[in-house]
């Protein structure tokens, strides 16, 4: 009797709370979708439409069809900015990523003492303000008195014109990017290394495998999904590069370090060519969209292995 009454009571409460239970999740997730629609989707659509117009933000927009896109694709400065950005991305993939991978393996070595101290030191750049540290690098790169040139000067060699030479300026940006991002990528690889079963290495040791063999035959294949994930992160963050060239070189000399986002900022914000900048944004959007689809694909890979 008592039990039946309790069950009935519970049912009543549950059906009373039924509507709430059903609607609550929508209420809980709605802030994201409202903000997403207003501050992300709407601007994206505005950009798409605006990319077909010529507009300075003051006078009436003038419809120019695809002329902005035509002009963009034939613009030498855009080609240069795109090339520079690709160089940053490739340098990150070929230099920073392997460096971070090796560093993660070293930091993961059992015979390493005080590993936490060294890790903390390597991770510090990840949290340091880009603007602040870029100004420091500006001093380090100074041709006549910078720390990087000081040894050359004392050896009587020609100092490097880090920020004034078209090629060295790119190298200077890449060193800065490497300094800023190696620690971050190392964090990802260290997390990946934790998931490799210890037995694999033990078995290999018994078979007499060397350190290098273990690295190439076990570590690299086992980390494959993480390496793919990190590659995409590197590509996406390369496309976003702005702070470093903006502060260090202002994109110079002669646009030789200008990134795509800098180009976008300069055309859209400084020169108020809003329609043209929207076309730049749209082209970038398409590029990133394709890269993101690839990443989603790889997320799938991750899930299966989990």
């Amino acid at each position: 009797m008592a039990q039946a009454a309790m069950t009935r009571g519970r049912e009543a409460r549950e059906s009373g709370g039924f509507q709430q239970h059903k609607l609550a999740p929508y209420a809980f997730i709605s802030p994201f979708y409202v903000l997403f629609a207003f501050f992300f989707l709407a601007p994206s659509l505005i950009a798409l439409v605006l990319s077909l117009f010529r507009w300075d933000g003051i006078n009436d927009p003038r419809f120019v069809l695809a002329r902005n896109y035509g002009r963009l694709l034939s613009d030498k400065v855009f080609a240069q900015a795109a090339t520079n950005t690709a160089i940053y991305a490739i340098a990150s993939l070929l230099i920073v990523l392997p460096l971070a991978l090796v560093l993660a393996v070293l930091l993961n070595a059992k015979s390493l003492r005080f590993s936490n101290v060294w890790r903390a030191m390597y991770f510090t750049p990840v949290v340091t303000s880009t603007v602040a540290i870029t100004l420091v690098f500006q001093i380090l790169y100074n041709r006549d008195t910078g720390l990087l040139n000081a040894p050359l000067i004392y050896l009587g060699l020609e100092p490097i014109y880090w920020l004034g030479d078209r090629s060295w300026a790119k190298v200077a940006i890449i060193i800065l990017i490497a300094w800023r991002s190696t620690g971050l990528l190392t964090i990802y690889f260290l997390a990946g290394l934790q998931s490799i079963p210890e037995e694999l290495y033990e078995a290999a040791s018994i078979d007499g495998a060397s350190m290098l063999q273990k690295f190439f035959r076990i570590t690299i294949p086992m980390l494959r999904p993480i390496i793919l994930f990190v590659s995409i992160i590197v590509l996406l963050s390369s496309i976003q590069i702005f702070d470093e060239p903006q502060i260090l070189t202002q994109g110079g000399p002669a646009n030789s370090t200008m990134s795509v986002v800098q180009y976008l900022y300069e055309r859209g914000y400084t020169r108020l060519r809003l329609g043209f900048a929207s076309a730049v944004g749209t082209v970038l959007f398409a590029t990133v969209f394709i890269l993101s689809l690839l990443q989603l694909q790889w997320y799938g890979v991750f899930r299966k292995e989990d």
């Binding site: 986002v261 914000y269 993101s292």
Partner: peptide
């Protein structure tokens, strides 16, 4: 996955 810089303007 879409960097916000793309909708900057």
């Amino acid at each position: 996955m879409i960097p916000f810089q793309l909708i900057l303007i």
